[in-house]
């Protein structure tokens, strides 16, 4: 499957994807390492762990490219008194990893960075990172917006470059600890679901029906072992 399509389908929340996964042949020594690294290696098989380590070892972007990414990412999600910045969430490092994990993004990103410096040189006689913010924004204003009714393939390359960078910045930031805190996501921890709070129901103009609620779990009885009569009626 075309990776771009796979990214698109991710946006739509689809679970389609499709890359090879290596088999699993744990040796004793490797398994011990996995045990030691369990906390940081989130249930990896030895082969997956090796792959992660290999990708971490390589460096794709050079120093200038990393410096340019840092400024671009902070233009996309700037820091302020109120908010942490993309740099605070180490987004450029995340992008560095992703271009090795999904190499199809490399040309678009690296080429985009070159294009950007070329534009800046031609118009202002300096590379992007040396420009004052006003001029950086002047350039970005020309590539930051797009018409969603025009298919992506037909949009200017520079626009697609910046869209990709914006996507990676947003995803890198909001999957980081500080990004999730800013978003306010309350899950990923043990809890007891007992329905949508009343004020939220009201805000969105919906309500629970008594008949439906009567079928649902009484959470005060969740730890009492289930027993049924012969007809399948729960009696505990």
């Amino acid at each position: 499957m075309d990776r771009r399509k796979s990214i698109k389908s991710l946006v739509l929340g689809s679970v389609a994807g499709g890359l090879a996964l290596h088999g699993c042949k744990p040796g004793d020594e490797q398994m011990e390492q996995v045990v030691e690294q369990a906390e940081v290696f989130y249930g990896r098989t030895p082969e997956e762990r090796e792959l992660d380590a290999e990708l971490q070892k390589e460096q794709f972007f050079n120093i200038h490219e990393m410096a340019t990414l840092a400024i671009l990412c902070d233009c996309i999600l700037p820091g302020s008194e109120e908010y942490k910045s993309a740099m605070d969430a180490e987004v450029p490092n995340f992008i560095e990893f992703m271009v090795k994990d999904i190499p199809e993004m490399q040309v678009n990103l690296r080429g985009g960075l070159m294009w950007l410096d070329h534009q800046c040189n031609a118009r202002f006689g300096a590379e992007f990172i040396s420009l004052e913010q006003e001029k950086q924004h002047e350039i970005l204003d020309e590539i930051a917006y797009y018409d969603p009714d025009i298919p992506e393939e037909e949009r200017p390359a520079a626009v697609n470059f910046f869209s990709l960078l914006r996507n990676l910045t947003l995803t890198g930031f909001y999957t980081s600890k500080i990004g999730i805190e800013e978003l306010g996501y309350k899950g990923n921890m043990p809890n007891v679901w007992d329905g949508v709070p009343e004020d939220v129901l009201k805000q969105h103009g919906v309500a629970y029906e008594e008949e439906w609620l009567a079928k649902c779990i009484d959470q005060s009885k969740r730890n009492i072992v289930a027993k049924w009569d012969d007809e399948g009626n729960l009696i505990t």
Partner: peptide, 21 residues
């Protein structure tokens, strides 16, 4: 614990859970 992915946070994966692997 060495097999667990449950209750991990996205930043514990360097690819933040992307389906490349």
């Amino acid at each position: 614990p060495k097999h667990q992915t449950q209750l991990k946070w996205p930043w514990e994966s360097p690819r933040r859970g992307a389906p490349t692997v």
